[in-house]
Design a protein around this nucleic acid. Structure first.
Length: 548
RNA sequence: GCGCCCGUAGCUCAGUAGGAUCAGAGCGUAUGCCUCCGGAGCAUAAGGUCACAGGUUCGAAUCCUGUCGGGCGCACCA
């Protein structure tokens, strides 16, 4: 028995009762939600208010009637049903349910809350996808952590997730990188050089040039391909290292070049041409985006003969659809807001279904250092790297700070603050709850209290105990909404609540006491809390220290 | 100018896809609590016309319109 089944039972009973009113209602209309005020119970229905208008009767009257039917139908684990103005029907769940549920949590462990009845599904999550032109920045960090956490959430729900990194290795950015390295190479050798106007100015370019001298000597010709290929290799290695230090690993890497080589891009153009969505103008090849609702047409191939990013991106997404994932997720920065509709519209024009593609857009990170905004640009090498951030703060804090806020609000990341306040950091609040539990368990063992599943959970009746039990029972509900919205921050908020409830319980109730039965019951309670805290923290990629 | 996101306590933000005479946390401020399983904690207090103005309805921080303010896009850059 879970909250879900209780909800289902209530809904069914309401539906039965409603038959007397001779009305057809949509499934969504029947909605049960926890009331804000605890005194109203655990679940409440607003169905009477909704119906009042339709059948032109007093909502209170309807509610009373339905309520009476519900009481008569004796729903499992429902202790009390009441009606309050203006017409809510409130359900009080028997505390026995929460007490029993604790046993379930302990029995199922990390599996608690999973819907094991759904069949295996697959998902592709594309994230980071930074071109290897320089070290990852703070902005990429938000992308990386969101992507990885979303992947974890999907995996928890039974998805087989492919984490994918896509990069453009054929475009202008990469050519500029090659030229920048080349210029530094000749500069180091005191030979004439020309630094590209929009070249990458960071010191790391110089380091790469030095390394090239060590590896390939001083005699490289102009425009040697090694400048770029070597730089790409080095930078990619650095990127992977940065990601590893956030405990992020990718399953596959996709690159632009492969879509030229496989002919996918040519095919895409031909297919779109057949749909009359391609035309030539001023020597360039255009995609007729206006034909599918966009405000202007977009260039696919520049007059220089070089495709814009849009073309390979579209071929790439077509490829992802072809790979038959049940769900495709893209994590993009706000600067991509206007680009993905073109990709999707082109696919739709080719009768390719894109309903299972979810685009998650996150707003930018503003880094604040010494009270000032740090403006970041890879090209000008004016940035704080992700590595720097991890070194300063540690990966747990970095990960947590990146997902603790809703992704559609801007994130002010105050470096000084995050560092100075590390003592009172929300991350430590969570980890401390976990460590505290471990400590009590250790203490119990020292006193001869071995944890056993055979405890009497009905002894858990204190307000703070019931509150903790309720939150724990709500974990699966929270996970379900998270799956729907794919907003990792709901998990973080939930864990804050859970930790807070635990700390309050800890302040109120002593676990290890003279009363052996009660001590065992409370050991059960903290074991359950430990399981859920651990599951949640693991989803967020944050460590669970037994001691701090 | 057009499009997308945002505006909630001094600061940083939650607010579960309209709910209920308390709009919630953390930080900061003020005051309590360790002879007692870890005080990185707990309790209490102060702090708000949910940017502003209209509208939709039984009911709005949440939906619609407009205004003001901030961010990001609007390239034959990615």
């Amino acid at each position: 028995m879970t909250i879900k089944t209780i909800t289902k039972n209530i809904k069914a009973s309401i539906q039965n009762s409603l038959e007397q009113f001779d009305i057809n209602l949509s499934k969504e209309a029947l909605n049960l939600s926890p009331p804000k005020q605890e005194s109203f119970g655990d679940l409440s229905s607003n169905i009477a208010l909704i119906l009042a208008k339709q059948i032109k009767r007093n909502p209170l009257e309807i509610a009373e009637k339905v309520c009476q039917d519900l009481i008569n139908s004796n729903i499992d684990y429902i202790d009390d049903i009441t009606v309050t103005p203006p017409g809510f029907i409130n359900f009080l769940i028997d505390k026995k349910f929460y007490q029993d549920n604790l046993k379930l949590i302990i029995k199922n462990g990390v599996e608690f809350g999973k819907d094991l009845s759904v069949k295996k599904r697959t998902a592709n999550v594309e994230f980071v996808s930074a071109n290897p032109t320089g070290p990852l920045t703070v902005g990429h960090g938000r992308n990386a952590v969101i992507g990885d956490t979303v992947s974890n959430i999907l995996e928890w729900h039974g998805y087989d997730v492919t984490k994918e990194y896509y990069y453009n290795d054929a475009g202008k950015q990469m050519r500029t990188l090659g030229k920048s390295v080349e210029a530094r190479y000749y500069e180091l050798l005191d030979k004439p050089f020309e630094f590209p106007e929009d070249g990458y100015q960071g010191d790391y370019i110089i380091e790469i040039a030095k390394s090239i001298i060590n590896h390939y000597g001083k005699e490289l010709e102009k425009e040697d391909k090694k400048f770029l290929s070597y730089a790409e290799k080095i930078i990619f290695k650095q990127i992977k290292n940065s990601l590893n230090s956030l405990r992020i690993q990718f399953d596959t890497f996709a690159n632009e070049k492969s879509f030229y080589e496989s002919g996918a891009i040519k095919k895409l153009l031909l297919d779109l041409e057949e749909k009359k969505l391609i035309y030539e103008k001023e020597n360039a090849t255009w995609y007729k985006a206006t034909a599918v609702g966009a405000s202007q047409d977009k260039v696919y191939i520049k007059s220089s003969g070089e495709p814009t990013y849009r073309l390979p991106d579209t071929a790439y997404h077509r490829d992802k659809v072809d790979r038959k994932f049940d769900l495709i997720v893209d994590i993009f920065g706000a600067d991509h807001t206007d680009t993905y509709p073109d990709v999707l519209s082109a696919l739709n024009a080719l009768d390719i279904n894109t309903e299972h593609i979810k685009i998650l857009i996150y707003q930018f990170v503003t880094l604040i250092k010494n009270g000032e905004k740090v403006k970041m640009s890879t090209r000008r090498a004016d940035f704080i790297t992700l590595d720097h951030l991890i070194d300063e703060l540690g990966l747990d804090i970095v990960r947590y700070f990146f997902i603790m806020r809703s992704m559609n609000t801007h994130l002010d990341f105050d470096l000084n603050l995050a560092k100075d306040q590390s003592d009172k950091n929300p991350v430590f609040y969570l980890q401390y709850a976990f460590a505290r539990i471990c400590n009590v368990i250790r203490h119990g063992e020292n006193q001869g209290f071995e944890f056993s599943e055979e405890f009497d959970s009905s002894l858990l009746n204190e307000v703070s105990e019931i509150k903790l039990l309720k939150l724990m029972a709500n974990f699966p509900v929270m996970m379900k909404t998270t799956l729907k919205t794919l907003e990792p921050q709901t998990v973080a908020n939930y864990l804050q609540d859970l930790a807070s409830s635990f700390h309050k319980f800890y302040g109120n109730c002593k676990v290890i006491t003279e009363d052996k039965k009660l001590s065992h019951a409370r050991l059960g309670l903290i074991h359950g809390s430990k399981i859920i805290l651990s599951t949640g923290l693991t989803l967020l990629g944050i460590s669970t220290p037994e001691k701090m």
